[in-house]
Design a protein around this nucleic acid. Structure first.
Lengths: 258, 258
DNA sequence: CAGGCTCCTTCCACTCAGTGAAAGACCAGT
DNA sequence: ACTGGTCTTTCACTGAGTGGAAGGAGCCTG
């Protein structure tokens, strides 16, 4: 570029994206200097780019001077197909499950080697749950994660098995044991966890299939303990899962004219 | 730039944003040429920029060759503060309302001179409703819109009053009549519509206040007709609205360290 | 109320990243 | 094989984008 040094190979586009990527769950409000630091940009550059982003509505400047993600970006994000369509179709079924079980309900998809939560439904006060819509968690320590892992391509499964980090004392960290569990998931059609992600929380999850039988998501609930009604919970989940599959048939085209 | 002509004053950033802005509710999957046309870019430029966006995860390329908004953009969008926090806090209350009324429930904020829907809760099959989460509708023809307009700054109200487009035969198109209605909203604390946005749909809405009494959102429901239970519906909404205000008190800090 | 700190903003000369025309590659109809 | 439509790649030119340096605006602390 000019003036002086500048990391060559860094396009303007990538700088803009680096700025957007600087925001995450733990950093939702950032000052200009923080943004510059996190994105690896000089202050003046960050300043100019950020100003353009604010003018367009991608970012918003708070009275405090901190920048946050803006509305325009929020509603463009909502146009992401899988997430939004699945959510929309699944939403009433998540309700049914909540009504039947009063447990926190989750809808999640696989994103690389992690679980991405795309919807969540919780009552006024429920079991403490780690997940947030839009957040990612490890696959091997969550119910929905095990389901998605059980039906994932081999290379994903291998990648995950090489890094079974311990989250609680009950987390499955031995590849063999997890593999056996995944086999069980495939034959029995549901996964469960017992305090493997957070203490005091157990979960059950089932796959959600598209009309062509491919597993596209997982549906799960979190409860304080699995007592003796695991069967009932699994049944509720499976009914909802099949309902979603049926609804998807009449809702997934997505290919437009002009 | 170079080569030849190029609209000067058009920064790379604005080109990237123009590409992102090319997506909307009716254009969620676009081909490269459509993107280039809509963003006002040459094909090669669009091609290069889009490739960068895809590489980063802001866009995704479908098997069909069409581009759609990607996951990365989706989850960055979720970091937008007002929307996400309000939603999260309000969600259980939307449920309560749904449980009590079985009507489609909406949570909306004002965005400029339009209503922006930030959450929506509907049963398996309800009254046909136009709104979508993330979509914008005119303020003067919706229940939540009237509420937000009633409490909006004067300049916004004036801007809206100059352009009262007719949506159905029942839409309020006379500024005087709407102004009177807004006064009524402020004194009585709720707004209503009768087939003003879409035929066969009526609505009731109330303001949602932050702990400091400012109106930050509106809560509304859509029903086939207002019959005689308007009072009951308004009461349900008001209870929920006050609940949200109370919950907001313990949830709105948003200012971080590093 | 100076002095030092951090944060934000503006200026400007230099130059390399980004540009679009043109041409090539690929389809699917006819 | 031709035609109209996509998408992709190349390339010489140049002005848009760059970061140092310097100027402000706060806000503590001594």
């Amino acid at each position: 570029m000019a003036g002086n040094s500048s990391s060559p190979g860094t396009s303007v586009t990538s700088r803009v994206l680096a700025l957007l990527g600087s925001f995450d769950d733990d950093h939702r409000g950032l000052t200009l200097s923080q943004l510059a630091r996190r994105a690896g940009l000089s202050l003046p550059t960050a300043h100019r780019l950020v100003s353009e982003l604010v003018a367009w509505g991608a970012l918003t400047r708070r009275p405090s001077g901190r920048y946050v993600v803006g509305r325009r970006l929020w509603d463009i994000g909502l146009l992401a197909p899988l997430q939004t369509d699945l959510r929309q179709v699944a939403s009433p079924f998540l309700h049914d499950i909540y009504a039947a079980t009063l447990a926190t309900v989750h809808l999640a998809v696989r994103d690389g080697t992690e679980v991405l939560y795309i919807d969540r439904l919780a009552g006024h006060a429920s079991v403490p749950v780690v997940s947030q819509v839009g957040s990612r968690l490890p696959m091997h320590a969550t119910g929905v994660g095990k389901v998605l892992l059980a039906y994932a391509p081999d290379e994903v499964r291998e990648a995950v098995l090489t890094d079974l980090s311990r989250v609680t004392p009950y987390t499955f960290t031995q590849p063999g044991r997890l593999l056996a569990e995944l086999r069980r998931v495939r034959t029995e059609g549901y996964a469960q966890t017992s305090e493997e992600m957070s203490l005091g929380a157990c979960s059950v999850a089932v796959p959600v299939r598209s009309p062509d039988r491919a597993v596209v998501a997982a549906l799960g609930i979190v409860v304080p303990s699995l007592k003796r009604d695991r069967g009932r919970l699994v049944a509720a989940l499976q009914v909802a899962s099949q309902g979603i599959t049926r609804s998807l048939a009449s809702a997934l085209p997505l290919d437009e004219s002009e």
